[in-house]
Amino acid sequence: MTLNATQWLIALLCAFMVGLSKTGFSGVSIITVALFAMMMPARESTGAVLPLLIVADVVAVTAFRRHAVWSHLWRMFPWAAAGIVIGWATMRLIHDDNILKLMIGVILIVMVALQWAQRLRPLPTEQKPASHLYAAAMGLTAGFTTMTANAAGPVMLLYFLAVGLPKMEFIGTGAWYFCIMNWFKVPFSVQMGTINAHSLLFDLKLAPLVVIGALTGRWLIKFVDQKAFEALALAFALIGGAKLIFDGWPHF
């Protein structure tokens, strides 16, 4: 893929933010989806972002692997996998890049709204069971959004809030969830051609920035007002989602 100097600078910044998002600044991940989808064709952007997310997942799992609550993960995995298959089938049916931009833009705006909703709720102090119906609905939604737009973060945050996971279990469970689901998506992305030799070479150039972002996030979170930082990122993500809808809508 051919990018100009400005696009390469944006790509490097996005890679840094991908790493940052896995170590405390979760809202930042949404803006990277919008920026990548604006820099390159929407379909190819999903495949370009996925390996970068996996690199960041490895760092997050290494740091928080002992804090996962596997009972929640086992409950979600089958439904999330089904959602990924549905998302893959949807992307196979849609060949118009403008329609994909429109779809990703709508997903991003919905995800931003969900992220804002969870920010308004305090973290519960005790765990509570979630119904199988709720787990199924959230799993399907997360699977579909992660396959089509790499934007399942707010859905999972809402689920983890609903079941009342403590802070460290919240982070550790999320780290394992996204790591496993992102690896599960790889064969589907390869089949669609969104992950290929060219995209992997592109990701290889950006991977060091992902690691630097993750390490920076672990250090920075101690000093930065996270709520203000994420609020700004979400505002830009909202603008990015609106831009994608604007680009796709006239041609739909």
Rank of each mutant, 00 (worst) to 15 (best):
140 L>K: 08
139 G>R: 00
120 L>W: 13
127 Q>S: 07
121 R>I: 13
144 F>D: 03
123 L>H: 15
153 G>C: 00
136 A>C: 06
139 G>A: 12
152 A>E: 06
124 P>I: 07
155 V>G: 00
128 K>E: 09
141 T>I: 14
131 S>D: 09
156 M>K: 01
121 R>M: 12
110 V>D: 05
112 V>W: 07
143 G>M: 05
116 W>Y: 12
122 P>I: 11
134 Y>S: 04
153 G>K: 06
145 T>W: 10
142 A>V: 08
144 F>W: 09
148 T>Q: 00
131 S>R: 09
145 T>S: 01
143 G>C: 03
118 Q>S: 12
149 A>Y: 14
156 M>A: 06
124 P>E: 04
113 A>K: 04
123 L>R: 13
135 A>Q: 07
134 Y>R: 01
111 M>S: 13
113 A>E: 09
136 A>N: 01
114 L>C: 13
116 W>K: 03
143 G>R: 01
129 P>R: 10
147 M>R: 08
155 V>M: 15
115 Q>R: 03
121 R>E: 07
131 S>Y: 08
122 P>L: 04
147 M>V: 04
138 M>E: 10
129 P>T: 09
134 Y>V: 02
153 G>S: 02
132 H>C: 10
138 M>S: 13
132 H>A: 14
149 A>F: 11
110 V>T: 13
149 A>C: 15
125 T>G: 10
150 N>W: 00
127 Q>E: 12
141 T>H: 08
124 P>A: 08
153 G>T: 14
133 L>Y: 14
127 Q>Y: 11
138 M>A: 12
136 A>F: 08
139 G>I: 08
145 T>K: 02
117 A>V: 05
115 Q>S: 12
143 G>Y: 02
148 T>F: 03
136 A>V: 15
133 L>K: 12
136 A>K: 06
142 A>P: 10
140 L>Y: 12
151 A>N: 01
124 P>K: 07
114 L>G: 02
128 K>R: 15
144 F>A: 01
126 E>A: 10
111 M>T: 05
120 L>R: 13
123 L>P: 10
142 A>S: 14
114 L>M: 12
135 A>E: 06
